[in-house]
């Protein structure tokens, strides 16, 4: 019989525990969101629902504006990612061409913005002077390009064999056609990875909404959930909607349920695109 190595035991045990620790809070949250009020309040709920009920979700969808926030988050994410990707490509492609005039100067200036910036208040006054307060443009424009993501894309473009673009150019291909017909179709892995990174960032965007969006009807899911979790006000509002109806939901339950609404779209998409983001990170790692 093969001898079991001590190191293997340690490795498998430690990794199993780490994986369980990563899942435990998520499972606890799910269990909370579908458990009965008395079970939650008496502290019986651990990692399995007690007195299974969907009442919390029904109350959440009927009594609060969570659906509107959900819709806002979808709008912010879909349009935001399209803008992000378009402008990131427009930045990465010229910077990846060795003959691009001013390439080194532009690169240096752009890297400098990674190390130093104006910060929260000067950016806020700028957005205010541009008249973007309380519009989604204030969310989309200041974060149009993530410089790190742009660098990853640029190094991918640089690694596409020069011969391909050279022969296309001899055939009379212009820069735009070269980009659209040759470079982009060859860059699917990096495009997928960066779409995912931008998508997650837009879905989770929190501080910018807090800073620039004032009207409650434009709030995204992240700010909605945060208000649910941290302030009792939101829960009181919930009770004001139907004062005659006794709401039989635990506050912990409703907090968990709103968080679950924000997590679920991510969990659904995550397993399908996991292979792409690992590639995306690897590209960055090789460059760095």
């Amino acid at each position: 019989m093969k001898k079991v190595h001590m190191l293997d035991v340690v490795v498998y045990v430690v990794l199993t525990i780490s994986a369980l620790l990563c899942l435990a809070p998520c499972i606890n949250l799910l269990a909370m969101s579908v458990s009965g009020q008395t079970a939650i309040e008496s502290g019986k709920v651990m990692f399995w629902p007690v007195d299974f009920t969907m009442q919390t979700f029904i109350t959440l969808f009927k009594g609060t504006s969570i659906l509107r926030s959900f819709k806002n988050s979808v709008i912010i994410t879909v349009i935001g990612v399209c803008l992000n990707m378009a402008v990131t490509i427009l930045a990465a492609y010229p910077l990846s061409r060795p003959y691009f005039w001013g390439r080194r100067t532009f690169s240096k200036l752009i890297v400098f913005t990674m190390l130093f910036g104006g910060g929260m208040i000067p950016t806020y006054t700028l957005v205010k002077q541009l008249g973007l307060i309380d519009t989604y443009a204030a969310i989309w424009l200041p974060g149009l390009i993530s410089t790190y993501n742009m660098m990853v894309m640029r190094s991918f473009f640089e690694n596409i064999p020069e011969d391909l673009s050279e022969s296309a150019r001899i055939d009379g291909c212009g820069e735009w056609r070269l980009l659209l017909k040759i470079i982009l179709p060859l860059s699917k892995p990096v495009l997928a990875a960066l779409t995912l990174f931008y998508g997650v960032a837009q879905w989770n965007t929190f501080m910018d909404v807090l800073l620039y969006i004032n009207s409650a009807e434009k709030m995204n899911l992240a700010v909605f959930v945060q208000q649910m979790v941290q302030s009792q006000e939101a829960l009181k509002q919930l009770q004001n909607v139907n004062p005659n109806e006794v709401i039989e939901v635990a506050s912990e339950g409703i907090k968990s349920a709103s968080t679950v609404v924000m997590v679920v779209p991510m969990l659904v998409v995550y397993p399908f695109i996991q292979k792409y983001f690992v590639k995306g990170i690897m590209l960055g790692a090789i460059k760095g």
Binding site: A19, C22, L23, F206, S256, S258, M262, F277
Partner: peptide, 16 residues
């Protein structure tokens, strides 16, 4: 499993 928490925002982690 261990890559997953990175994609959850601080709003969610705070709530947890």
């Amino acid at each position: 499993i261990v890559y997953l928490p990175h994609f959850l925002s601080w709003v969610i982690v705070g709530s947890m």
